[in-house]
Amino acid sequence: MTLLARADRLVARIAAFETTKALATEAEGLRTRAEQLRAAARELRRVRAQQAALRANGLEPERDGTSSPPLVARARELLGAFGADRKAILTVHPPLDHSFLRPIKSVCEKVDLACANAWQTSAGAILGPLPDDLLNVLERIADLAPEVRRIRALQHEGQGIVTGNPGSSAEAVAAELARLRTISTEKSEKWAQLSGGGIPAEVVSFLRRAAVREARLSEVTPGVVEWLTVRGLLNAFRVSPG
């Protein structure tokens, strides 16, 4: 083989290598884009399912004014360009990250926040608050402490549901709402048994002082006696004369 023939053969091999290298680079770029678009599609499906699950249970996430038509139009542009030339997805302008992927991420984050707010607002209203200051007083009374601890445990369990993720299906959200209503009902019943529909101010004052052994006989009013008697607590305290 002549030197010239060998040179031609080497040039052909180099050209083939460059072509293979270019194809490999293109394939890697397409793979990366496919992964990015697949991840974006998963996120869109996830937040859409979350919205639908909440709405099916009567919870309506607030709309923040985010407009989807521009993203839909951009998706159609990209699909058309890719259909005409698959390499177009690698060289689109404006860049794909700025014009499509980041806006999708932003929309998903806003929908996530709206769904979380809708859930926490509705679930929090079902659970309701606790009169912590009063419970702190009642918890110091040995005979009432177990009931107070149970009420606190129910509130803690319910709060975990309120701040948690209710799931992305209508059935999951419904189950969490049912669970929360059960907890709220038991908590309300136990509080009603404990407070008798409301603890009079004179009783609260007496309990605060009795809890630190500072209650006096003059504070044991007829109302206090009645409240303690109904709950079997009349002999649970020691009071000082005066």
Rank of each mutant, 00 (worst) to 15 (best):
residue 121 T to E: 12
residue 240 S to C: 05
residue 24 A to K: 00
residue 106 S to Y: 02
residue 131 P to R: 08
residue 57 N to G: 03
residue 97 D to R: 12
residue 2 T to A: 11
residue 67 S to E: 12
residue 228 L to S: 06
residue 57 N to H: 05
residue 55 R to L: 07
residue 137 V to T: 08
residue 44 L to S: 00
residue 165 N to Q: 13
residue 7 A to P: 00
residue 52 A to N: 10
residue 112 D to A: 06
residue 50 Q to G: 01
residue 193 Q to A: 14
residue 98 H to M: 14
residue 108 C to G: 01
residue 144 L to M: 02
residue 205 S to D: 05
residue 11 V to I: 07
residue 227 W to M: 00
residue 42 R to N: 13
residue 89 I to P: 13
residue 218 S to L: 12
residue 31 R to V: 10
residue 67 S to H: 02
residue 199 I to P: 02
residue 147 E to A: 03
residue 95 P to V: 07
residue 107 V to M: 06
residue 174 A to I: 11
residue 31 R to F: 01
residue 40 A to S: 08
residue 134 L to T: 10
residue 176 E to S: 13
residue 113 L to R: 15
residue 203 V to D: 02
residue 143 D to P: 08
residue 193 Q to L: 12
residue 57 N to D: 05
residue 96 L to F: 01
residue 51 Q to R: 13
residue 240 S to R: 15
residue 21 K to E: 14
residue 219 E to Y: 00
residue 30 L to P: 11
residue 60 E to K: 04
residue 185 T to P: 00
residue 60 E to T: 05
residue 160 G to I: 02
residue 24 A to R: 06
residue 195 S to W: 04
residue 108 C to K: 02
residue 27 A to M: 00
residue 191 W to S: 03
residue 105 K to E: 05
residue 117 N to W: 11
residue 52 A to R: 13
residue 100 F to C: 03
residue 136 N to K: 14
residue 203 V to H: 11
residue 9 R to T: 07
residue 71 L to D: 01
residue 169 S to V: 09
residue 140 R to T: 04
residue 181 R to A: 10
residue 85 D to S: 08
residue 29 G to E: 06
residue 98 H to S: 15
residue 51 Q to D: 05
residue 16 A to W: 07
residue 82 F to H: 09
residue 148 V to S: 10
residue 112 D to F: 06
residue 66 T to E: 11
residue 171 E to K: 11
residue 90 L to D: 04
residue 131 P to E: 11
residue 224 V to K: 01
residue 163 T to Y: 12
residue 93 H to S: 15
residue 68 S to Y: 10
residue 152 R to Q: 14
residue 142 A to V: 11
residue 210 A to P: 13
residue 231 R to I: 04
residue 36 Q to P: 01
residue 135 L to K: 02
residue 160 G to F: 03
residue 202 E to Q: 13
residue 41 A to W: 13
residue 24 A to F: 09
residue 157 E to N: 05
residue 181 R to N: 09
residue 77 E to F: 10
residue 73 A to Y: 04
residue 140 R to W: 09
residue 184 S to R: 06
residue 112 D to P: 02
residue 118 A to C: 05
residue 29 G to T: 08
residue 27 A to K: 09
residue 233 L to P: 08
residue 51 Q to I: 12
residue 105 K to H: 10
residue 205 S to G: 13
residue 186 E to H: 04
residue 126 I to Q: 05
residue 35 E to M: 13
residue 99 S to C: 11
residue 17 F to N: 12
residue 192 A to T: 12
residue 143 D to L: 14
residue 13 R to P: 00
residue 66 T to I: 09
residue 136 N to S: 12
residue 192 A to F: 06
residue 189 E to Y: 07
residue 43 E to R: 02
residue 154 L to D: 08
residue 229 T to Y: 10
residue 152 R to P: 05
residue 235 N to R: 10
residue 164 G to L: 07
residue 96 L to T: 02
residue 213 R to N: 15
